[in-house]
Design a protein around this nucleic acid. Structure first.
Length: 693
DNA sequence: AGCACGCCGACT
DNA sequence: GTCGGCGTGCTC
């Protein structure tokens, strides 16, 4: 806590030096300094790479109590006023440094706790970014009114903390963990104060859903007197978990950390963790930096979800943040997913983490029956099915299932008919004038060019000459409309990212959802139809099939078991991806993916960096790098600057081993420092950004 | 962002 | 020989 000031008289500006007591140090500006540890090492909130190191300031006597390590301060830096955080209080400064006083303590509480400061430094280093960039995600913006609340509260209740009774004893034989080999052991280790690391592919909902697994792991950790942080991809999952915890563990105080809750509640919840009043934090990606006092376990749900990538520099992924924290802090790690990312598989393959899996017959007993039916083939022959966009097997499954309960229909993506193709040969339809893509809008049935805006009145296919168009990736709204016509007796609900719905009843109904937005059905869906498979798999990109498999497994996990009549129909051609679903073998699929990446030396079998920027400076940037021989450097690729015309940028790719990672990141950071001190145009550096590849 | 220090050209 | 151009680097 705050250092205790001894009864040194406060000296006023302009007061004679002689009048201060001999022990009281003076700063160069003549202000009386704190009696103990009169200097503060400060990290500046300034994202310029060459300022990414601590600066020492003196602590005026008046700020002695408030200037605690982790406090938010305001300082003079050259001509400007900047904010920053105190990393530590010190007795001395390095030779040659003449410190000036802190201007102000903005938040007199440790909003940047030492564990978080260390972890944030490690994250910055790993991603060749600056500490202040990482802190922007780790520490929420200040809300002055909240600081005030806590300031007055702190005065009232000084000795409240302390005995946090390790209360709850739990019985793992009752837990959903009993279905997983090694599951009860895992809980026992956590309860005993150990820090195991595990990767788990969760069983379908019939075996008890993921929130039960999370709750039990959290409770076990709590019993050892330690805290837990749970990171989930989005507000829907956060809501589900919060509800579950409130119902089953009302005695455990939980802080909810979500940027979307708004600045004031966000900061208030954050503060309750930072001050040690709450030892359990749940939230979206930035909750990975929750400032727990005694972290025992980090849990990540659905680590393959794209929203766990921070969209701002240095583009860190919550999985990597938690991995670093678990290592640095000696805490446990639990990655839970309905499927298995190649990254998580790598942790299992290198034996860094345990794999806790259900036996094959257990897996089978909780799984729905899964069939694969061609995406297009059967539909061609049946005019009705053709119109409704449903393969026959899917239509039949839906019809039967609707006798008993809700049916989930997962479609590729949101929006209303983005592009079009020839109805006969399926070639993409393009504009006769400029070859831009044609689209159908809701308002008119006439296809319009997305580039030049011309209306294609008399369109004919470039390839086969046919004159009819069809919609390509059809969105959720359109599908809902069509299904409403196909099953007029049942209500149709649609759930997308923009219009979310978290839960539906067990009544017969059609639920159309885009990936990631599937509502949970009370008691599980009777059936799920996974549409648009081939079209989704046709997309460009290294990790498309992995992504499609993830979202299929997500949907499957919400369906009742086969013994309760649960059915899943996948409308896609037979591939490794569909095979993985039929066998319910997400780890096997991830293992093959990882092996293939290893063969061709692509992430996540290796690490990567993408460098982008103005052609000249980017090339110079790459040229200036001194990298180990083993790094492969690919480029440059020229591409048009989005938003401008005729402005070309260059992109370079670096692939390197995990062993070379720290050195490569360090060299990239050094090059950024060189480039920024010479006021060169900014080259963006993205380390391990799976979306950029 | 601003300020100091430093190495070349114009002037007393 | 001295004043001042702004170009480069540093700011605790």
């Amino acid at each position: 806590m705050a250092l205790e000031a001894r009864g040194t008289p406060e000296s006023l500006p302009g007061l004679d030096v002689v009048s201060t007591t001999p022990e009281t140090k003076q700063s160069t500006s003549g202000v009386a300094l704190a009696p103990e540890l009169p200097y503060a090492r400060v990290v500046l909130d300034q994202p310029v790479p060459h300022l990414d190191h601590p600066f020492d300031y003196s602590v005026p006597l008046s700020m002695h109590d408030d200037a605690v390590p982790g406090a938010r301060v305001s300082v003079r830096f050259g001509a400007q006023k900047l904010n920053g955080y105190i990393l530590e209080r010190r007795a001395d400064v390095e030779a040659g440094v003449s410190p000036i006083p802190l201007l102000k303590v903005l938040t007199p509480f440790p909003v940047l706790n030492p564990l978080v400061a260390t972890a944030a430094r490690a994250v910055a280093d790993r991603y060749a970014g600056t500490l202040s960039d990482v802190l922007r995600a780790a520490v929420p913006p200040r809300a002055a009114s909240v600081d005030k609340e806590f300031r007055t509260e702190a005065e009232v209740s000084e000795a409240e903390a302390g005995s946090r009774a390790a209360s709850s004893s739990f019985d793992s034989s009752e837990s959903a963990w009993r279905h997983y080999e090694g599951g009860p052991d895992f809980l026992a280790q956590l309860a005993a104060g150990e820090s195991p690391r595990a990767v788990v592919t969760v069983l379908p909902q019939a075996a008890g859903d993921w929130t039960q697994l999370v709750t039990d792991a959290l409770t076990a950790t709590h019993a050892s007197g330690r805290g837990t942080t749970v990171v989930v991809p989005d507000a829907r999952d956060l809501q589900l978990l919060e509800t579950r915890l409130a119902e089953h563990e009302p005695a455990i105080d939980v802080a909810r950390l979500n940027a979307e809750d708004g600045p004031t509640p966000r900061y208030r919840n954050f503060m309750s963790v930072a001050l040690g009043r709450t030892n359990v934090a749940i939230g979206t990606r930035s909750a990975a930096f929750a400032p727990l006092k005694a972290p025992g376990l980090y849990i990540l749900w659905q680590d393959a979800d794209q929203s766990l990538n921070e969209p701002r520099a240095p583009y860190q992924h919550a999985r990597e943040v938690l991995l670093l924290r678990a290592s640095l802090e000696g805490a446990g790690l639990l990655i839970l997913s309905t499927s298995r990312s190649a990254e998580a598989q790598r942790l299992v393959a290198t034996k860094w983490a345990l794999e806790l899996a259900a036996a094959r017959d257990v897996r089978r007993s909780f799984s729905p029956r899964i069939v694969v039916t061609g995406d297009d083939f059967e539909r061609e022959k049946d005019p009705f099915l053709h119109a409704s966009r449903l393969p026959r097997a899917a239509w039949t499954a839906a019809k039967d299932a609707l006798e008993k309960g809700p049916v989930l229909i997962q479609v590729a993506r949101t929006g209303f008919v983005p592009t079009t193709s020839c109805e006969r040969c399926r070639a993409a339809a393009s504009c006769k004038h400029c070859h831009g893509p044609l689209s159908l809008s809701h308002a008119s049935a006439v296809p319009t060019c997305q580039w030049c805006g011309r209306v294609a009145n008399a369109w004919s296919c470039d390839v086969c000459g046919f004159t009819k168009l069809r919609a390509r990736a059809i969105g959720a709204d359109r599908t809902a409309e069509e299904l409403g016509r196909a099953f007029p007796k049942f209500p149709v609900v649609s759930a997308t990212g923009a219009q979310p719905k978290y839960e539906v009843s067990d009544k017969p109904q059609l639920v159309v959802a885009t990936p990631g937005a599937e509502p949970r059905a009370h008691g599980g869906y009777q059936a799920a139809l996974l549409l648009d498979g081939d079209r989704s798999l046709m997309r460009e990109g290294l990790r498309v099939s992995e992504e499609v498999v993830h979202r299929w497994f997500d949907a499957v996990s919400l369906v009742k078991s086969a013994s309760e009549g649960g059915r899943v129909v996948i409308a896609a051609s037979q591939t490794d991806a569909t095979q993985a679903l039929v066998r319910m073998d997400a780890p096997g699929f991830a293992w093959r993916e990882l092996e293939q990446r290893r063969d061709v030396n692509l992430p996540p079998a290796c690490r990567s960096a993408v460098l982008e920027g103005p052609a000249r400076s980017t090339d110079e940037f790459v040229e200036s790098l001194s990298l180990p021989e083993t790094v492969s450097v690919l480029g440059p690729v020229a591409f048009e600057n989005p938003g401008t015309s005729g402005d070309y940028l260059h992109r370079w790719l670096l692939f390197f081993t995990y062993a070379d990672g720290p050195n490569v990141a360090k060299e990239l950071k050094n090059a950024k420092i060189r480039s920024s001190t010479h006021r060169k145009p900014v080259v963006s550096v993205r380390v391990d950004d799976s979306r950029a590849l």
